[in-house]
Design a protein around this nucleic acid. Structure first.
Lengths: 156, 156
DNA sequence: GTCCATGCAAATGATTTGCAGTATC
DNA sequence: GATACTGCAAATCATTTGCATGGAC
C-alpha cells in the first residue's frame, strides 16, 4: 500500500502541523504492513531499520497524531499492547467496515470485510435515538488450523 | 442482581479453589452494580467500604479468577482502565449477547441487547472456516443528549 | 498440618512528559 | 528567527509479583 506523500504533506499543513522526515517514515512503515496490526514498538523497529536516530517517544507522538487525523486505526486485543493499522479510509470520506476474527487458541488475527452492521446501526438509531457513526467488532473463536470446523465449546 | 452463594461456592470447589470472604465480597460488589462497568479500583473501593482490610492485589487476583470462571466479563473502552461487568450467563451455558454504545462526546456507555450477529457468525463459519464462539461489539456515536438525532459526522 | 489465599510493598512495563537541542516554515 | 518537533531520560500509573503471614480444608 503506497502513501500519497503530497497529499499527506497537504493534510499536515492544513492542520498547522510541520512536515518532518519522522512523520513520513512512521506513516510509510505502517502502510508497508497492510495486513499487520502493529504495536508502537514494532513500528519503532521498522522505522529504526532505515533511520536509527528515531526515538520511541516520537513514534508514540506521531502515532497519536496519525490516529487523530484518521489516517490509522487503533485496535486493542487486550494483550497489553495498543495496536495500529492503516485506516482504509485514507482520510478520504469512505468509512471502513472490517472486523477482526481472533483465534482463542493460537492468537492469530484475521481481518475481514462485511457491511452487515449497517442494518444494526439503523436499528439502533431508530430504537434508542443513538446516532452511530462507527463501530468495532471482535469475534472470538477457533481458526481453521486450530479446529475451526468442529470443536466443542470448551474454554480454558 | 443477587448472587447464588451456594452455587458460587460449589463452582469454586469444583475448580479446586478455596471459598474465602474476599472472593464472595468481590463478586457481590460487582453484582450489586449490574449497569456499571467497574474498574478494579472501583471494585476495590466498593468492597473496602464494608471490609477495609482487603488489599488491591487481592481484588486484581480475584477479578482475574472470576473472569476465567466466566462469572464476569471484561470490557475495554480504551480509557486506560480494564473494566468488568456481571456476566449475563452466570456461568450456566447461555451465551450473552449485548453490545455497548459509546458516546463520543460525553463518554456515556449504554448497553443493549441484540442477537443480530448470529447471522454474521454463521456467515463467517461458512465463508472462512473460522468457528465463532463469542463476540464483542462496540458502537461509537452520539447519544440523545449529545445530539443523537441529527449531527453532521464531524470529528474532533 | 498442608497448602492455597491474602496483604503489603516492591517490581514491571507500556505509555507520557519535561526539557534542551534541532529542524521547519 | 520564531516555534514546533525530536530525542533522551525521567516520570507515570495500571497491573503484576515476591514473600511472609493467615485462613481454608
Amino acid at each position: 500500500m503506497a502513501v500519497d506523500r503530497e497529499q499527506f504533506k497537504k493534510l499536515l499543513k492544513e492542520n498547522g502541523l510541520r512536515v518532518t522526515k519522522q512523520r513520513l517514515l512512521v506513516l510509510e512503515a505502517i502502510a508497508s504492513c497492510p495486513e499487520e496490526h502493529l504495536t508502537a514498538e514494532e513500528i519503532f523497529d521498522l522505522v529504526k531499520a532505515g533511520y536509527p536516530e528515531i526515538g520511541l517517544a516520537t513514534v508514540y507522538r506521531t502515532i497519536q497524531m496519525l490516529n487523530e487525523l484518521h489516517l490509522i486505526d487503533r485496535i486493542n486485543f487486550d494483550d497489553g499492547f495498543v495496536r495500529y493499522e492503516m485506516g482504509n479510509a485514507h482520510g478520504l470520506g469512505q468509512k471502513h467496515h472490517h472486523h477482526h476474527l481472533i483465534c482463542m487458541k493460537c492468537g492469530r488475527v484475521i481481518s475481514f470485510r462485511d457491511d452487515l452492521l449497517e442494518e444494526l446501526e439503523s436499528k439502533i438509531t431508530d430504537t434508542v435515538g443513538f446516532h452511530v457513526v462507527d463501530h468495532e467488532v471482535k469475534l472470538y473463536g477457533y481458526c481453521v488450523d486450530c479446529g475451526g470446523d468442529f470443536i466443542e465449546e470448551k474454554r480454558e
